[in-house]
């Protein structure tokens, strides 16, 4: 019921807003095509390079950045799958079932995310060294520390919103709780599951400290760590850092786009009704 004029204003505001949000990324993309000498000084403030170059991308592809990117994808995906799965079990139990020590469990989950990651790195590293698990994909296991609490809490709010009546009608039909969970509850909480999956994925994707410590070997290095190698003792190779940022960001966005289509279909299919 909006007039064409107001909707135009809204669109303008939105476009402006998006431009502001995207600006740093656009600038970084433009900078990645500037030769190193134009990245600093007066020409740094120009929009386009005087002598555009692909040299930073070429230099980057000579490093093992693609392998690191692959590691990041594998590690983030494995973590996303198992964390989303166990978080959805756990949060369904918390949201819907009765059991002893529920409040304690919720409090403990919340409490673990009040501690900074740096204090778990040492003990986990020592255990991993003992088990011979450093430089492997076992690193996905401790990532539960940073991702499980958020995933669980998001899912609790979503499971809590699934109408009780639907569950009850399933029980009346004689379905067990586990069966009800998989057949009725899970599909209804899909938007929440996708949201928590994206949260988990990006959380792992962005992680630096554990990855640096546990997977120091070039073969198992993740992309965030690989970028930290793009510097000399006294300087940062800005051209390569900006190029790497572009390479790192675009595939993540593709994932996000794929996921959010699912979120949209989750609503439009009208799965959540009263």
């Amino acid at each position: 019921m909006q007039t064409a004029k107001t909707s135009k204003t809204i669109m303008t505001v939105i476009i402006l807003y998006l431009l502001i949000i995207a600006f740093p990324f656009i600038w970084v993309t433009l900078t990645s095509f500037k030769p190193e000498s134009e990245i600093w000084g007066q020409s740094a403030l120009k929009l386009f390079a005087d002598q555009p170059t692909m040299e930073h991308y070429e230099a980057l592809f000579k490093t093992t950045i693609l392998n690191s990117l692959k590691n990041s994808f594998i590690i983030a995906s494995i973590t996303t799958i198992y964390v989303t799965l166990i978080a959805s079990f756990c949060s369904y139990a918390i949201a819907r079932l009765k059991f002893k020590f529920k409040k304690v469990l919720v409090a403990v989950i919340l409490a673990t995310s009040m501690f900074p990651q740096m204090i778990v790195v040492g003990p986990i590293y020592r255990t991993f060294v003992k088990l011979g698990w450093t430089n492997s994909f076992y690193i996905t296991l401790p990532y539960s520390m940073i991702t499980l609490p958020v995933a669980t809490f998001i899912l609790i709010t979503h499971f809590a919103k699934v109408p009780v009546e639907m569950e009850e009608s399933a029980y009346i039909d004689g379905a067990s709780k586990i069966r009800t969970f998989f057949r009725i509850i899970l599909p209804l909480a899909m938007p929440g599951i996708f949201t928590s999956a994206i949260m988990t994925f990006i959380g792992v994707w962005n992680e630096f400290l554990l990855s640096l410590t546990l997977n120091s070997d070039e073969k198992f290095r993740t992309a965030t760590v690989a970028i930290s190698f793009l510097r000399g003792q006294f300087q940062i190779f800005w051209g390569q850092v900006t190029a790497a940022t572009v390479i790192l960001t675009i595939p993540t966005l593709i994932i996000v786009i794929l996921f959010q289509k699912q979120i949209i279909s989750g609503i439009t299919s009208g799965a959540v009704k009263e």
Partner: peptide
């Protein structure tokens, strides 16, 4: 059986939290 379901469902999460959060945090 039904009342045990809750414990089965929370078990994996509890194990992970214990191993990778509580024990390391406690040690530190």
């Amino acid at each position: 059986v039904e009342s045990k379901t809750a414990y089965i469902l929370i078990l994996p999460a509890v194990v992970f939290i214990l191993l990778f959060s509580i024990i390391p945090i406690g040690e530190s």
